Amino acid sequence: MTDTPATSFVPADELGAFCAALLQQGGLGAEHARTTADVFVWAARRGIDSHGIARVPAYLELLAKGIANAAPDLRFTSTTPAAAVLDADRAPGPVALSAAADEAVRRARGTGIASVGVRGTVHTGAIGYYVSRIAEQGLVGLGFVAGMPNMGYTGVKGAAVATSPLAVAVPARDHAPLLLDMATATVALGRIKQARANGTPLPPGAAATADGTPTTDPELAVMPLPLGGAKGSGMSLAFEVLTSVLVGAPIFAAFHSDDPQGRRHRQNALLIAVDPAAFGSADAFVADVDATLGTLKGLPVADGADGVYYPGERSAALAEQRGASGIPVAPKVRRELTESAARLGVEVPTALR
């Protein structure tokens, strides 16, 4: 009988430095490597493991294949103070969207509300990070992303639209910020893969075969179905228009055309920052947000529920917990990270050895 490999618990700062070193050896500059690692560690602390440090090997592959540009020329263009477009030049998503979030905040300070479209990035990562980055500055953050079609659309045979996510972050004073971060799919692609590996059935209406036939068999499932049917697929299409089409880089139409370049991996995004001070008192706003969240949490708890929670509350609590106890790294992820470290000549933290 062999022992099952144990999960490692690694301090967030050590894990971040390790991931940054891997990414830098993989080709990114020091600043961009650190920025990308910060996004992964943020997601891992909050329990968003599908977008956490497990993504590092995939990003190293994107860099090695030239799909992601290790030295992008990020350029902002603008014709009005309240809006800009960032040409990401195939930069990793964390690099491009972090820059876009900061630019949106800077502009919103003067205009009250500002938006930055991101054109031609590569895998945006956890978009909750970028709107949270905006909320940390006392502004409301909204984000939309469009990517390669990999999800069904109501009435269409086969994959039609992307599992395009949206995120909203609202600052508060005494509570953790409200953070809504969701995809337009019923389940993530990662969950389908996990069910396949575990041999467990998928929930009804969550996934489909290649021709769009719903299935609960993970061996037959190749794509998720939209959340709420026509509602989820309609939202995904709307996000394609609000991001890709808006910045002059359509994905959907090109993907379904005869042009082979239409299926080249890329993503687009739109980040919006709203300054509460432009609508009245910023202090009164966060106080009222606190009152709203407090009222919600004071409502009667339904039978069988363990409490009343607002979006982002539990993940913020988990981030505090993992900040104190360390971030769990599953055996498979640990193996992939240490193998990457051996190949790139990066020292592995003691907790991962």
Rank of each mutant, 00 (worst) to 15 (best):
F255C: 09
D290C: 11
T200L: 04
V241G: 06
G212D: 10
R173K: 14
V187M: 00
G232R: 06
L271K: 11
Q194R: 00
F255K: 05
P177F: 04
S257M: 12
G294S: 15
P214G: 06
L271Q: 04
H265C: 13
A230E: 10
D259W: 07
L246F: 14
A230R: 08
V170C: 14
T216M: 07
V245M: 13
A284N: 09
V286P: 11
A287H: 07
G262H: 12
A162N: 14
V286C: 04
P177G: 04
Q261G: 15
H256T: 11
A207L: 12
T184A: 10
M223P: 02
G199I: 05
G205D: 08
V245A: 15
A238E: 06
L293D: 03
A221K: 06
P218V: 00
Q267H: 13
V222Q: 09
A221F: 02
R196W: 00
P214F: 02
A195H: 02
A206H: 05
V161D: 06
V247P: 08
D290R: 12
P204C: 08
T163E: 08
S281P: 12
A206P: 13
P218E: 03
T209Y: 09
L166D: 00
H256P: 13
P224T: 01
G199Q: 07
L293T: 01
N198R: 09
L237I: 11
T163Q: 09
A291T: 13
V168P: 14
A238P: 09
V274I: 15
V274T: 02
T213H: 04
E240L: 08
P218R: 03
A254Q: 14
S164I: 05
A238N: 09
S281R: 06
G199W: 03
A169R: 12
T163F: 01
P171E: 12
D283N: 03
I272N: 02
A162S: 14
A169G: 13
I272F: 01
A277G: 14
K193Q: 06
V286Q: 05
H175W: 08
G262K: 13
Q261M: 14
E219D: 13
N268Q: 12
G234H: 09
A278N: 09
Q194S: 01
R173M: 11
D217N: 09
T213M: 11
A282Q: 04
S236C: 08
A238M: 15
P165T: 13
T216G: 03
M182D: 01
A208H: 08
G262R: 07
V161G: 07
A284L: 10
D211L: 08
L237T: 07
A162K: 03
A162P: 08
L178T: 03
M223I: 08
S257I: 11
T243F: 07
A269K: 10
L220H: 04
G229V: 02
R191D: 00
A188M: 00
G199F: 08
G190I: 00
V286Y: 00
A287C: 08
F285W: 03
L293N: 08
V168E: 07
L246H: 12
K231D: 06
D217C: 03
A253G: 07
I272Y: 01
R264V: 15
L271V: 10
L246T: 06
G248M: 14
A207V: 06
P218L: 03
N198I: 00
T215D: 05
P204D: 12
V161T: 13
D174P: 02
T209R: 14
A277T: 03
G199D: 06
P276Y: 03
A167T: 13
E219K: 09
